[in-house]
Amino acid sequence: MSATAPASVPRFAGRGWTGSRLPWVVLALVVGVSLWAGAAPRHTPSLDQRVRQVAADVRCPSCTDLTAADSNAPTAVAVRQTIRQGLQQGQSPAQIESWLAGRYGRDILLRPPTRGVAGLVWELPVAGAVIALGALAFAFARWRRAVSGGDPAEADRRLVEEALARSGGPPGDEP
């Protein structure tokens, strides 16, 4: 750990520590190269994989909350069989899903639609996150204005001294 007193360090100054940047650059390289090399191979998915992908969005009809990909209930197996047949006949996943929805109702599909009122379930969290981030940024800006008057490092120092005084004794020598 650095023994530098924090108060004397320029904050995020961007110069004076170029030397110590090197390990971070190397680190970024290592991570980048590893992720590039570790990306899943891009071959076309097998029929089995495609069946599972579609089934992962379909509720297992006789279960309450499992997907047809997760369950081995007879109806889930039947759903996977139907998906397999559909894919083999060249149907698109959307066609297969709408066939299922035409028998069971829209709530057989576990991924809510992205359009219309139902799209709100996707949009609201994103909108909320943007608003919250904005509010946080605004708050930080206001706080920055509020504290720009005093020297915060000085305040830290005061706090330490105050606390030390309260706990009854000066610190010992540095080890």
């Binding site: 009809p61 006789s62 007879p74 109806t75 197996v77 039947a78 759903v79 069989q81 139907t82 299922l100 028998r103 069971y104 109702g105 057989i108």
Partner: peptide, 10 residues
């Protein structure tokens, strides 16, 4: 279970 599926049986 194909008939059951085509009727939407749970």
């Amino acid at each position: 279970e194909h008939i059951a599926l085509s009727y939407g049986v749970r």
